[in-house]
């Protein structure tokens, strides 16, 4: 129901940020998130950052995925 894509924060001024994906930049509102910094990834939906993407959790997910394959085979 809801497209959301991970984009990188390039610049922040007040509650607006410039975000980037694949070299494409767009303005995004940060009104719905707290504690985000330049360099962070956020999920972008309809022009708003709706959540910070957690890098540690992402790495952990990938590690678990690697394991699923190996343990089950």
């Amino acid at each position: 129901m809801c497209l959301g894509i991970p984009v990188k924060i390039m610049k922040i001024s007040d509650s607006l940020a410039v975000v980037e994906i694949g070299g494409v930049k767009r303005q995004a509102s940060l009104a719905l998130v707290e504690d985000v910094r330049v360099g962070d990834y956020v999920i972008l939906h309809a022009g708003f950052a709706i959540q910070k993407v957690d890098e540690d959790d992402a790495r952990e997910s990938l590690r678990l995925l690697e394991e699923i394959g190996i343990c089950d085979i």
């Binding site: 959301g4 998130v33 999920i43 709706i50 993407v53 957690d54 959790d57 992402a58 997910s61």
Partner: peptide, 12 residues
């Protein structure tokens, strides 16, 4: 897990 916290986004 990389985008969903148990409590969700409380600001939103």
């Amino acid at each position: 897990t990389r985008a969903v916290k148990h409590e969700g986004n409380v600001v939103a």
